[in-house]
Design a protein around this nucleic acid. Structure first.
Lengths: 318, 318
DNA sequence: GTGAAAGCGCTAACAC
DNA sequence: GTGTTAGCGCTTTCAC
């Protein structure tokens, strides 16, 4: 059996309460005693038993607030599924989650939602948003106020968030480049890139990783056009249809964000003969993507693990 | 806060001990009272709190025995990593694991190891073995003796194991068929299949799923040769070299088990011109596979999640 | 057959 | 600043 707080207390010649205070840097202990206790704990190889912790934690229930731009983006359905799985698994330890749902990429909306959530008595925050200065500032302020934050699916540059739970988007772009290279006989690729939003770090990285790897592997390609879908199918459709019409030489479409169905519909609308000649790559395993994949419009879908992302976010915070 | 055993006891007008006995079908409680308690618990929506359970479980440490044919099969390194991760995470709840390592597919060896393990005072068993009558019988006997069993990575047909943790090998074969279909212009495929062992259910299913899907999708192919590697690189090398020499028309090698490096070495040894003309598909992300992938010998590797398999096996048993 | 009580390891409230 | 104690929910042992 592992060493308990009781044994540390005996060895250090103090009470269990004092050990607890010392090891958690709580106030109410003199620095001398605290230092001594920490030494003894270290020496005995003390490591707090999580079963005991959990049971005691029941008295201080933990509420985790989640802010997600999920409305109109099916991908987040599975993230939410993961969040709920975690909640189900940890409700026994006093964990509750509270989800705030957002539509689209309006920075003001996001900031309002995050602030509201932070002010609603939560103990921790789990957020998926954009990587803009205003939002970073907002999140940093919340962290400063003592609420730990994890980013989920979308990370921020330079915030002191606890951790990021999500995929490595550079690697994802790299993978996409590898996939399209299987069609080397179709080079030079005439490329259309549809990204979600220039404010989303992950979308940018998917594009950078893709370009970098194509160059590194000396794949012959030319970037013909690029636009933002705003993760909206209608916008995506219109811009894609326009671009494909203007640029008759496009033979490869790389979709780095949501709005995939919109782009696919535009490809679908092309005259036969042209349509089959276009390779389409996109991300995330959601229902409409499967449909277009079966139809042969989409050639490759690179997936992440949304359920796991939701699940792990809660687990880390707990 | 959720309903506790104490509340159930009060509502039912009995003691906490009696509730515990009733809900766990332990002896020492009359069927009348037991029935009544179960009804009350049901009505109140009682669900045992896992934090409390875990803490109490500390008094009865749980030892999980694991029997794995890992020696000489790098894939299991990650399975073991997962087992150890789980142990690290759950040592706080009194869980210990004990691993017995095996080499190869000798049924007698496996049965001896399983029996030894079962007789060594373990509380649960986690096993990866072959799907033969003798081994099934052995495992069923152990289950009958009251030790719960999960199968990991390799399932048995028709045993009363608690659950199977591993991949869907039919789907894996299907995926492989989809991958090779990307090279449709190379049809008809002249196929060499290297399976690991005819006694391993997963290997068989990988082959069946592969064949079925090629047929279903009307891919033109012919099975030229098939052999067992015994998951051994040397055997694999010799048989593959022989087969490739005898059958000069082979242009596609499907490796359903281990021994991949052996087969690849055989392909590598072919004269240039012939060598590049052969597509190779295999399974599992282990180091030598990466090497042959970079070299361009292997075209596709379909992976499973060995770490997760190890981790989940322990978690389920706990 | 049933109730009462101790105790798993930890934290927090209270006492000194 | 430090010690003491109660209690989180559950299981098990001991008494009756």
């Amino acid at each position: 059996m592992a060493v308990t707080i009781k044994q540390v207390a005996e060895a250090a010649g103090v009470s269990r309460g004092t050990v607890d205070r010392a090891l958690h840097n709580r106030k109410g202990v003199s620095e001398n005693v605290a230092e001594h206790v920490r030494k003894v704990a270290e020496r005995l190889g003390y490591f707090p038993n999580r079963a005991g912790k959990m049971l005691a934690a029941l008295k201080q229930p933990l509420t985790i607030g989640c802010v997600l731009p999920n409305i109109g983006n099916l991908f987040y359905d599975d993230v939410i599924k993961g969040l709920k799985m975690a909640q189900a698994e940890m409700s026994d330890f006093g964990v509750t989650i509270k989800i705030r749902e957002l539509r689209g990429f309006d920075a003001r909306d996001h900031i309002n939602a995050i602030n509201e959530m932070a002010g609603s008595g939560i103990n921790a925050l789990c957020v998926s948003s954009m990587d803009t200065p205003a939002i970073r500032e907002c999140v940093n302020r919340i962290i400063g106020s003592g609420i730990p934050v994890v980013t989920i699916n979308n990370d921020f540059s330079g915030t002191r968030r606890l951790c990021y739970v999500g995929s490595d988007y550079m690697a994802a772009g790299k993978t996409a480049a590898g996939m399209i290279s299987l069609y080397k006989e179709k080079t030079p690729f005439k490329l259309l890139i549809a990204t979600g939003s220039i404010n989303v770090k992950g979308h940018n990285e998917r594009v950078r990783g893709f370009n970098q790897t194509l160059k590194k592997n000396k794949i012959d390609y030319e970037l013909v056009d690029i636009f933002e879908t705003q993760d909206d199918d209608l916008t995506a459709y219109e811009l894609a249809a326009q671009s494909l019409k203007t640029n008759a030489d496009i033979n490869c479409v790389y979709i780095a964000g949501a709005g995939v169905a919109g782009v696919c519909r535009a490809v679908e609308g092309l005259p036969p003969g042209r349509r089959e000649n276009i390779r389409v790559l996109c991300f995330d395993d959601i229902k409409p993507h499967r449909k277009y994949m079966r139809q042969g419009i989409i050639d490759f879908v690179i997936c992440q693990e949304p359920i796991e992302q939701g699940y792990q976010s809660v687990k880390k915070l707990f």
